[in-house]
Nucleic acid binder design. Sequence first.
DNA 1: AATTAAATTTAGACAAAGCTAAAAATTATA
DNA 2: TATAATTTTTAGCTTTGTCTAAATTTAATT
Lengths: 215, 215
Amino acid sequence: MTFSEENYLKTIYHLTSVSDADISTNAIAEKMETKASSVTDMLKKLSEKDLVNYVKYQGVSLTDKGKLAAKMIVRKHRLWECFLVEKLDFSWDEVHDIAEQLEHIKSEKLINKLDDFLGNPTEDPHGDPIPDANGRIIKVEKELLSEFEKNQIGICVGVKDTSSDFLKYLDKQEIALGSQIEIIEKESFDSSFRIRVGTKEITISNKIASNIYIK
Amino acid sequence: MTFSEENYLKTIYHLTSVSDADISTNAIAEKMETKASSVTDMLKKLSEKDLVNYVKYQGVSLTDKGKLAAKMIVRKHRLWECFLVEKLDFSWDEVHDIAEQLEHIKSEKLINKLDDFLGNPTEDPHGDPIPDANGRIIKVEKELLSEFEKNQIGICVGVKDTSSDFLKYLDKQEIALGSQIEIIEKESFDSSFRIRVGTKEITISNKIASNIYIK
DNA sequence: AATTAAATTTAGACAAAGCTAAAAATTATA
DNA sequence: TATAATTTTTAGCTTTGTCTAAATTTAATT
């Protein structure tokens, strides 16, 4: 499997986890910052290899084979992210681009040994679940902070947006995985929140609250 | 720089360290298991980028820029080999192919953090020197076991051939980096050696002796 | 239902990196 | 030194993954 094929599978996998319906050519093109025509070409190729169910003009979904392959890529990506943060002391906003490269290294033995070396983590540094060697995922029920109401208290267990900018913002506000967050006030006008993080009180926009997972 | 360009630079670097003279197109082709015509194409490209000095029909050498780039690839390869052996518990005959992939990961920060994580090793699991972040290499004077004479004693500090087959042979004979080796007898007929490794006495061919470095 | 708009696919082109086969340059040999 | 052998390069083709522009299909709107 080529890097490019792997990237397409991964993108389809991620898009599927959001919408559930078949994925459109344009959605893939947009996410991968490429052209729809390139996507069409690749979908044909992946379909040839039985990695996706593709019907012209109707969108795609992953086959079982494709889904497993995608999960293995995600597994690698997230394990490498753990390695970078826990062993090499990277911060959580720096690891994505490097993991994008490392996820394509081909060696089952390597990834399973890495998994053991890291103590078989179930979540990456952003709170996303890590598929095991068989593709199984432990799902943690979690809610967006934006769904919470006044006086509720929760623990930050993940982020939806994993962009460097967003993560740096969270660092600045001292919000990290494990932080306790209490809703002090929910402003009805703009749906912004007044929250307590640790001892500090801060105000965050609804957009921010919509990208933080709480349990 | 593409993977392919990096592989060519690395190959030229390795060939240079053996012969010193300009490297021929065919020598590169043979080492890389590719065709001479493909090599010519790539040499033009590398020459364009000022990574090699290339004169048609006359062979190539690395420019300073090319040599530094090559050293950085070798640095990455050897640091990853250390990681695989020391942290992930791979044996020394398993790491080459995986390191061939890992050496192309692009992130200076990653490789320098990995270097620190490993305790800034100066040699890889085969006894080969690891260039530092500036490309400097600590050379250890070492000799081939085949050059040794009767009754001399030395420590195995490296191997010339790093193929899996050879390394597995050494494992079987319980020869490892750091093993003490004593020449008991040198057979003049076929230049084979009777040696003592630790407590055991074994006979090795000249070919084997010509691939073990001793200090 | 017809027409317009949007999404998707096809056709044809390009760059990278490889190949084969033929041509050219270099080296070796008679 | 002329010829043969070897090495190297060139020319042209292939594949992968991309692109643009045109054609087609589907969806939306009047």
